[in-house]
Design a protein around this nucleic acid. Structure first.
Lengths: 134, 134
DNA sequence: GATACACTTGCATATTTGTGCAAGTGTTTA
DNA sequence: TAAACACTTGCACAAATATGCAAGTGTATC
């Protein structure tokens, strides 16, 4: 019951930012819940920045979030209609800069430090380039 | 060959305005070319305003324009992929305020003063409320 | 209770966006 | 050539958006 009273232009507005598209593409590709620190490692952007983008996607009804202890796991809504729309969009407009491949590779690495399928480790630098986070 | 090098977030950005959505919905519904003065009558908004919104949609590759004498006819691109995406979007997020019904009704009225299927009359007030245009 | 960590947010600021007005361009017609 | 009309755009300005920093909240662990 999330998207009641959200106008179409508001959905598009939520999707009108390159970082938010990277988040959506990553979620579509990984089919996984992911928390902010993992997202931060995947996109190599600071948490406070992505936190706001996630909030916008959440307010537009495109993603759901669940708290589990210290972590909050975010994922795409399960409604097939919205998922199909998003899939259609990303397939019609492919990721020409190949950003998804890089984001997804970093996310896969980050997944390795999960324990029992959950984020249980302090967020850490995966390679040396990644000094973006404090 | 329009949409080369347009990123997905730019498409969404072009669609992130309520007036631009009204234009797209009207074009999807009417399946017709329409010129700016007709659009202005349909949406009850001044031409200079809609001219800019049309330009944005055009730059994003979503609509095509052809000049015929004084008039420039605008229509959705013919590419089935983009059309399907737009159709999907408007069906998943229906026009809850029923704006399309009103825009389309005014557009239908405006069509009556076409000659030989083309805009040939000076744009005029259709009903008294419509004093928006000079 | 104190500390640690995941995440959020108030504030300041730079940039982008939407819009009205008035002046402009381009084309046709008198 | 002048006037009419469809459409566009330079300028000014208000509102919305994105972002960094630093301080905040909430939860678990020591």
């Amino acid at each position: 019951m999330h998207i009641v009273n959200v106008a179409l232009h508001e959905i598009f507005q939520a999707l009108s930012d390159p970082y938010r598209i990277r988040i959506i593409r990553l979620m579509l590709e990984s089919k996984s819940e992911l928390c902010l620190c993992e997202l931060s490692d995947a996109l190599e952007e600071p948490e406070y920045k992505l936190s706001r983008h996630v909030k916008i996607l959440k307010n537009s009804g495109l993603i759901d979030s669940v708290r589990e202890g210290k972590w909050i796991y975010h994922s795409l809504v399960t409604d097939e209609k919205y998922l199909k729309l998003l899939h259609k969009a990303v397939s019609v407009f492919p990721d020409s800069a190949n950003q998804l491949a890089r984001d997804f590779a970093r996310f896969q690495k980050r997944l390795n430090i999960r324990e029992a399928g959950r984020c249980r480790q302090p967020s850490r630098v995966i390679d040396e380039k990644q000094k973006v986070r404090r």
